[in-house]
Amino acid sequence: MLQIGAHLTISKGYEKAAKEAISIGANTFQFFTRNPRGGKAKALNIDDIQRLDEISKVHGFASLLAHAPYTYNLASGDEDIWELGKRLLRDDLDRLQHMESCSYIVLHPGSHVQKGVEYGIDRIAQGLNDVLIGEENTMVLLEGMAGKGTEIGSQFEELGAIIDQVHHKNLVGVCLDTCHLYSAGYDIVEQLDSVLLRFERIVGLSKLKAIHLNDSMMPFASHKDRHAKIGEGTIGLRAIVEFIKHPAIKELPVFLETPNEVEGYRDEIKMLRSELNK
Rank of each mutant, 00 (worst) to 15 (best):
N35I: 10
A66G: 04
R51Q: 13
D48V: 12
K42V: 12
V58R: 06
E20D: 13
A21D: 00
H59K: 04
I55N: 04
D47S: 13
R34S: 11
D53S: 02
Q30M: 14
T28W: 03
T33N: 09
E54L: 07
R51H: 11
I46C: 06
D48K: 03
G25M: 04
K40D: 15
F61L: 02
A41S: 15
I24M: 02
I24Q: 02
K19M: 05
N35V: 14
D47T: 15
I24S: 06
A21Y: 02
G38T: 11
G39D: 10
Q50A: 13
A21C: 01
I24V: 10
K19A: 03
I55S: 05
L64G: 06
A62T: 07
K57Y: 02
G38Y: 11
R34H: 11
I49F: 08
L65C: 02
L65G: 01
H59F: 01
L64M: 09
A43E: 12
I55Y: 07
I22K: 10
N27F: 09
L52H: 02
R37M: 11
L44A: 15
K57D: 03
S56P: 04
K42R: 15
I49N: 07
I46A: 13
I55P: 00
K40H: 15
T33C: 14
D47R: 14
D48A: 10
R37E: 09
F32K: 03
G25I: 04
V58Q: 09
E20M: 13
Q30D: 08
K57P: 00
G60E: 04
D53T: 05
I24K: 02
S63P: 00
I55W: 02
K57A: 02
G38E: 13
T28Y: 00
R34M: 13
A41M: 06
K19P: 00
L64A: 09
R37G: 07
D48I: 06
K57R: 03
F29T: 10
G39K: 14
G60Y: 01
L64E: 00
I22V: 07
I22C: 06
F29L: 07
P36L: 12
N45E: 14
A26Q: 11
A26N: 11
H59A: 02
P36H: 06
L44E: 15
R51T: 11
I22M: 06
A41R: 13
Q30N: 10
I49A: 03
D47W: 10
L44V: 15
K42Y: 08
R34Y: 08
Q30I: 10
L44Q: 14
A21I: 01
E54T: 07
V58L: 08
N45F: 00
A66C: 08
L44P: 14
A26E: 05
A66F: 06
K19C: 03
G39F: 10
F61H: 00
G38N: 14
A41P: 11
G25V: 04
I46G: 05
K57E: 03
G60S: 06
K57S: 03
R34P: 04
E20Q: 13
F31V: 05
G60W: 01
A26P: 08
G60M: 06
A66P: 04
K57L: 08
